[in-house]
Structures are given as structure tokens and as C-alpha cells.
Simulated assay, not measured.
Amino acid sequence: MAHVGMQLPKVAFQTRVRDESIEGPNPFRWEEKTTDDYFKGKRVVLFSLPGAFTPTCSTYQLPNYEKLFGEFQEEGIDAIYCLSVNDAFVMNKWGKDQGVENVGLIPDGSGEFTRKMGMLVKKDNLGFGYRSWRYAAIIEDGEIVGWFPEAGFEDDCPTDPYEVSSPEHVITWLRDNKPFEKEQVA
């Protein structure tokens, strides 16, 4: 399982981006993005969840990260990303339906990133197949510096824990763990 001090796994994500040069009702093209594209040289909050359009994810987790984006910026966060084992089509539609403007959505369609993070679980009991366990992390230049996995990690978990990966918990941790600031010399 991922942990503080771990470098994020190097993977490529298959995304869909709007391209005005494409005519018709679906003006999007494939674009490969890598772990470095999202995390290199940045201080980022990453949160992962079981699935787009699901109740806790759509009612609380994504909307509250979106709403608190400005407060995260005040704590030195450059970007917030939501990752799910869903394809780019699903993630784009979910983001549009949620009115997301500040949180970037990362499609981990094959689950490769989630598997390499040690967070891939079976959710066959819900008809989902393999999905991500719910977690959040503070990432600095590709390294995990804050790690918040929900309790009860297991395949086919009968519950859906949501506490330590919440934006409220993560922002409190950020406020309590400010980076050391050197005294200014006059």
C-alpha cells in the first residue's frame, strides 16, 4: 500500500480533451497524460474514490473539494485532482454534470495507477468489479507527504467509509502541518 515518502507510480492516463478543430457533436481527441504531467514540480491534493456518479462521491467528496479549492490554494496547494477507476468518457461527463471548474479529473480506466498504489479492491458485491479504495494524499513533486486512506481496506467491503479522505480533514491536516518557514534575516 502507498505510504508517506513513496514516489508515485509512473503511468500514462488516457484522457479526452476538447479540440475545436474537430467538427461534429463530439469535438474531443485522445491525449495521453503521465504522472509527471499531473504532479511534477507541484504541491497537489490527490483524492481517489470508488466511482463517478456514486452517492458519497457525488454528494460530498467531489463537491466539497471543489467548494474548498480556494482554501486549499491559501495553504499552498497548486492543484486538486480526483482519480477514479473509470474511463475518460465517464469522468468527463461526471465533471460536466457536477459543474467542476477547479478540481481536475483523472481517468484511471484500466486501474493501473490504483493497482501500483496498492489501492485496487474488488467491489463485486456492488457490481462494480475492481475499483479504488477511497483515500486522499498530499503530493509534493511526485512524493507522498500526507497519506489518508479510509479504514477497513478490503475486497467487497460491506461499508463505504468516508472520513479521513474528506476535504475538511485534509485541509485541517495541512493547516496543522505547515512547512517550516525560515526566519527572515534583516
Rank of each mutant, 00 (worst) to 15 (best):
residue 37 D to I: 01
residue 37 D to E: 06
residue 37 D to R: 02
residue 37 D to M: 02
residue 39 F to C: 07
residue 39 F to Q: 06
residue 39 F to L: 08
residue 41 G to A: 03
residue 41 G to K: 03
residue 41 G to W: 03
residue 42 K to E: 04
residue 44 V to A: 07
residue 45 V to G: 02
residue 45 V to C: 05
residue 45 V to E: 02
residue 46 L to A: 12
residue 46 L to V: 13
residue 47 F to W: 08
residue 47 F to Q: 07
residue 48 S to D: 08
residue 48 S to W: 05
residue 48 S to Q: 11
residue 49 L to S: 15
residue 49 L to Q: 15
residue 49 L to K: 14
residue 49 L to T: 13
residue 49 L to E: 15
residue 49 L to D: 15
residue 50 P to V: 04
residue 50 P to M: 06
residue 51 G to S: 09
residue 51 G to K: 01
residue 51 G to Y: 01
residue 51 G to M: 05
residue 53 F to K: 08
residue 53 F to A: 10
residue 54 T to G: 00
residue 54 T to F: 00
residue 54 T to Y: 00
residue 55 P to G: 06
residue 55 P to L: 05
residue 56 T to H: 11
residue 56 T to C: 08
residue 56 T to A: 11
residue 57 C to V: 05
residue 57 C to S: 07
residue 57 C to R: 03
residue 58 S to Q: 07
residue 59 T to P: 13
residue 59 T to V: 14
residue 59 T to Q: 15
residue 59 T to K: 15
residue 60 Y to H: 12
residue 60 Y to D: 11
residue 60 Y to R: 12
residue 61 Q to V: 07
residue 61 Q to T: 07
residue 61 Q to D: 08
residue 63 P to A: 11
residue 63 P to D: 10
residue 63 P to S: 11
residue 64 N to K: 13
residue 64 N to G: 09
residue 65 Y to M: 01
residue 67 K to A: 14
residue 67 K to C: 14
residue 67 K to H: 15
residue 67 K to E: 14
residue 68 L to D: 04
residue 69 F to R: 12
residue 69 F to T: 09
residue 70 G to K: 14
residue 70 G to I: 12
residue 70 G to F: 14
residue 71 E to P: 08
residue 71 E to F: 08
residue 71 E to D: 14
residue 72 F to V: 10
residue 72 F to Q: 06
residue 72 F to S: 09
residue 72 F to K: 08
residue 73 Q to D: 14
residue 73 Q to A: 14
residue 73 Q to R: 15
residue 74 E to I: 10
residue 74 E to R: 15
residue 75 E to Q: 09
residue 75 E to S: 05
residue 76 G to N: 04
residue 76 G to P: 02
residue 76 G to R: 02
residue 77 I to N: 03
residue 77 I to T: 04
residue 77 I to F: 04
residue 78 D to E: 10
residue 78 D to Q: 12
residue 78 D to A: 11
residue 79 A to R: 15
residue 79 A to H: 15
residue 80 I to H: 13
residue 80 I to A: 12
residue 80 I to P: 13
residue 80 I to M: 13
residue 80 I to Y: 12
residue 81 Y to H: 06
residue 81 Y to V: 03
residue 82 C to G: 13
residue 82 C to I: 07
residue 82 C to D: 10
residue 82 C to W: 06
residue 83 L to F: 01
residue 83 L to E: 01
residue 83 L to V: 06
residue 83 L to A: 03
residue 84 S to D: 02
residue 84 S to Y: 01
residue 84 S to N: 04
residue 85 V to N: 00
residue 85 V to D: 00
residue 85 V to F: 00
residue 86 N to K: 00
residue 86 N to D: 00
residue 86 N to V: 00
residue 86 N to A: 00
residue 86 N to T: 00
residue 87 D to A: 04
residue 87 D to Y: 05
residue 88 A to V: 01
residue 88 A to W: 02
residue 89 F to I: 03
residue 89 F to K: 06
residue 89 F to W: 05
residue 90 V to Q: 02
residue 90 V to K: 01
residue 90 V to S: 02
residue 91 M to H: 01
residue 91 M to K: 01
residue 91 M to W: 01
residue 92 N to Y: 07
residue 92 N to A: 07
residue 93 K to H: 14
residue 95 G to C: 13
residue 95 G to K: 11
residue 96 K to C: 12
residue 97 D to M: 09
residue 97 D to I: 05
residue 97 D to K: 09
residue 97 D to L: 10
residue 97 D to W: 07
residue 98 Q to F: 09
residue 99 G to R: 05
residue 99 G to M: 05
residue 99 G to F: 04
